[in-house]
Design a protein around this nucleic acid. Structure first.
Lengths: 211, 211
DNA sequence: CTTGACGGCTAATTCGAATTAGCTTACAAT
DNA sequence: ATTGTAAGCTAATTCGAATTAGCCGTCAAG
């Protein structure tokens, strides 16, 4: 990785830990292994580094459209896969969503930075809401809608059902962002959540009481 | 309200909107209607203002222990009330929790400040987790546990049930914090959520399909 | 009536962090 | 070989925001 990219990388790490204003240009330079003034050979100023991070992130979000994509069009395609989903597949779906958000280092640091810097610019809080609330809800909503249509699950209100599926995942995510040591516990909770979700919304099946 | 308190009040408002580092002492003074140096007659420095806000908040949290209290002891007492709860009462419980968090101006601004300033000090993120994640989960958990014992609701796993109850509330809260214009929509969603929650966990009752 | 402390003001001062100036080396291209 | 440019450095410089100095009016207590 060349210096220009290393600057972005180290800057993002620092911003996500301490927030823009609490990171000095010299801190970033230190991490990269150069002196602060040298950094200006690569970026016009501190703000330009921040802006470049945002751009870079947008680029990545578009790029990995293949992996776990979150837009209506692809949801319709993916949904085919889940039409005849099993409980284990549902768990996989949830864990994928969770682990992707949690473990992609870039995504993770970016999300933490957004959390801290949402005031920096209304646009940032909009991005946060879109990426971590509205897009997942609409994507998951489409998948669940398909499952209902296919008769795997049943509900009178898919929107709420989606909330029931995603809100716990979101909450576990915010927990792990702040206290990474709770990740193992969170993953167990996540699995239990999805199993229970599946039972609750299973079509025409009486909830059973054994394990 | 005397100057000393007005400083805290205006400072909290500004910090919650822009974050500590982006608020100048002069901004706070302006709002209060004095000049920056005058502010030092009341607080040693900017940090002291921040610290005073934290203290004040702790004081308030203790003080209003009567209202919607969130500690194990009181939950046991409150739970008596909910033993024979109706759906409408359950909705009231959820709405109270939600509206309290959302509308108490001090709590609200404080929560927003915590969100932004959690990096400022690990203690702050701990406070956030306790107040908005762990305490509500444990409090709600106790209430729901009682309802299960009393036979109003049924589940094999109260912990997950609690997550299903509270996570959507938490999520709606973070939405409204960032985009207050979505509050009306959020309240409707909240009610629908609780009704569905109640049906899903209702004891021995087949889910009905009519309105 | 005078004194002192409270709370305000304007005009410095300080200080730290961003940024710029100007020099140097490496190295690729002509 | 020469030249130009990229990328680094040290030593300024700038600049903005926090804080301090020092002055003034008010008012309550003695």
């Amino acid at each position: 990785m060349d210096t220009k990219h290393r600057i972005l990388d180290e800057a993002l790490t620092l911003f996500s830990e301490k927030g823009y204003a609490n990171v000095f240009v010299a801190d970033i330079a230190d991490r990269v292994g150069i002196k602060a003034p040298s950094l200006y050979k690569h970026y016009k100023n501190k703000q330009a580094i921040f802006d470049a991070i945002i751009e870079e992130m947008n680029r990545r979000f578009l790029e990995q459209a293949g992996a776990l994509q979150i837009n209506g069009t692809d949801a319709l395609v993916d949904a085919e896969i889940y039409k005849n989903i099993s409980e284990d597949q549902l768990i996989t779906l949830g864990k994928n969503l969770f682990l992707y958000f949690l473990h992609d280092e870039y995504t993770r640091r970016f999300r933490k930075m957004l959390t801290i810097e949402q005031f920096h610019d209304k646009k940032l809080s909009d991005v946060y809401m879109k990426k971590y609330v509205d897009d997942p809800l609409s994507y998951q909503g489409m998948l669940l809608e398909m499952m209902v249509s296919a008769g795997v699950l049943q509900t009178e209100n898919v929107e709420i059902m989606t909330l029931h599926f995603y809100a716990p995942i979101y909450m576990l995510l915010t927990i792990c962002d702040r206290e990474p040591e709770r990740e193992t516990e969170a993953l167990k909770t996540l699995e239990a959540h999805i199993r229970q979700f599946n039972r609750l919304y299973a079509r025409n099946e009486k909830k059973h009481s054994g394990q």
